[in-house]
Design a protein around this nucleic acid. Structure first.
Lengths: 95, 95
DNA sequence: AAATATTATGTCAGATATGATATATATAAA
DNA sequence: TTTATATATATCATATCTGACATAATATTT
């Protein structure tokens, strides 16, 4: 049987792949955070859009990761879903 | 002597003021997070700009709060300052 | 199955962020 | 004070996001 962890380990030797992989991970973290917030609020894209005073299609773009939203957009999304946006910069290397 | 807390409490009865106050607080949190990350990395705006492949004036705009930066910009800022961007949506009302 | 609701994709105009340059202001060093 | 360093502001061209609409694709309900 195929062991994906082994394959991944092998691919991770390629710096190009690592870069892409990490970018995907970060993108996924934002997208999943958005969807989780809306799911938590039990709202449809249309409902969030109306509270944000924008269109459903734009919400789909945000959650689809096809745009890099501004802080302003994220704050409005948070407000619409009854949540609060928290951002922070965590050090990668100690000190 | 003047008690600013009392003054604030009085002003907080005005919804318009409350809205503005909270917006200022959020703006400040981003700005201070940016500056803290750069201070932690002990870098100048010029140094961060070079690592981000942009200009020093743009960093000043970010830290001055005159723009609402995109996620892409914040991620590059984080990478340049040796940190990692963390974003989350915290529920304001329990449940 | 059909009908409905929800989400995704495409296009376009207008708003805003980004990148670059120059310059002004502020802070620190000499 | 002078000099150097760091940060802020102004303007402009370009890129990207945002908003709106239509429509396609998917999922859910009846």
């Amino acid at each position: 049987m195929i062991d994906f962890d082994d394959i991944k380990k092998e691919w991770m030797k390629n710096p190009e792949f690592v870069k892409e992989y990490e970018a995907l991970e970060e993108e996924f973290s934002l997208v999943s955070a958005l969807i989780a917030a809306r799911s938590e609020a039990d709202m449809t894209q249309q409902e969030v859009a109306e509270k944000m005073e924008t269109s459903q299609s734009y919400i789909a773009k945000l959650e689809g990761g096809t745009v890099s939203p501004s802080m302003k957009a994220l704050k409005r999304y948070a407000a619409a879903t009854g949540s609060r946006l928290k951002i922070s910069f965590e050090p990668t290397t100690p000190q």
